[in-house]
């Protein structure tokens, strides 16, 4: 049995760890509330942008635009959204793995990463990183999304990538989120035809200056919005995952302290018994 002093020291160390995890849990949960509100605020813009694209696509059959064109896929690019920090359960690993499943041939894939965890993940696997953004994943701004969107559009138009994917984490509930990989470019027209962009009267819509110009303007906006939405959603998931992870860590620490306390008391009792035995033995009563 370990000595009393050792046990005491372990209790102390577990206790201070517990204090940290508890604080992190509280911080994450208060940040989570705010991040959730932000997520709600970004949704209307996203939905309305989709509707406009759906309107243009449905209203004018057979529209063609470089951003809608499917090309033979030789090179892919992946935008991976992760956090900067760990201690959030499987959050970073899950989304990175999901992204990796789309990178069948490492040599033909390049990546734009958000968050240092994703950068390290791709670096280790030898995937070329075009640009990485760090320090923004917890509170992404629209201007960050603009930069990434511009980068993605440039890659696509210059032919450096024939398909661009976006790997992020979808928020379902605080306890549950799911990594997701979607294709951002080329924009899939068929995806919109099923939307509620009610086709009646769509053909009467006037486009100023004209349909192509509207599409030219709206599609980059759409890509930016998708990226921004994904960043905000991932931030919520990261905080949710951290909260859950820290909550269970705090609980585990409590359990550990309990069992260590038991051990400590047993050791203390054992020592007392031994001392009594020694005193009794030393007194010579039983001689």
């Amino acid at each position: 049995m370990a000595s009393m002093r050792d046990i005491k020291r372990r209790i102390k160390s577990v206790n201070s760890t517990q204090q940290i995890t508890k604080a992190m849990n509280l911080v994450a949960s208060s940040k989570l509330t705010r991040a959730k509100n932000r997520l709600m605020d970004t949704r209307p813009f996203f939905q309305e942008t989709r509707k406009v694209i759906a309107g243009v696509v449905n209203g004018s059959k057979g529209i063609s635009h470089p951003f809608l064109e499917q090309r033979e896929v030789k090179k892919k690019a992946i935008i991976l959204i992760t956090g900067d920090r760990g201690l959030c359960g499987g959050y970073n690993a899950n989304v990175s793995k999901a992204a990796m499943s789309h990178a069948d041939d490492v040599n033909n894939v390049s990546a734009i990463t958000v968050g240092s965890k994703g950068r390290e993940f791709f670096k280790r696997r030898g995937i070329k990183i075009i640009e990485s953004f760090t320090g923004i994943s917890e509170k992404p701004g629209y201007s960050d999304a603009l930069k990434i969107g511009q980068l993605a559009l440039d890659l696509f138009t210059k032919g450096e990538a024939d398909e661009i994917y976006l790997a992020y984490t979808e928020f379902i509930t605080t306890l549950y989120s799911e990594p997701k990989v979607i294709k951002v470019l080329p924009v899939d027209v068929n995806e919109f035809t099923n939307d509620d962009g009610d086709s009646s009267g769509q053909s009467l819509t006037i486009y100023e200056p004209d349909e192509e110009a509207v599409l030219e303007y709206v599609i980059p906006k759409y890509v930016n919005t998708v990226i921004f939405g994904a960043m905000v959603e991932s931030a919520v998931c990261e905080l949710g995952a951290r909260m859950t992870a820290m909550d269970s860590a705090t609980e585990n620490a409590s359990e550990m302290i309990d069992s260590l306390n038991l051990l400590y008391n047993r050791a203390r009792q054992g020592q007392i018994t031994q001392e009594i035995t020694e005193i009794v033995g030393g007194s010579g009563i039983y001689d």
């Binding site: 243009v56 769509q202 819509t205 006037i206 100023e208 200056p209 509207v214 303007y217």
Partner: peptide, 11 residues
């Protein structure tokens, strides 16, 4: 734009 405007999309 007033009430009852024709459908329009513009930049």
């Amino acid at each position: 734009i007033l009430h009852g405007h024709q459908p329009l999309t513009t930049t």
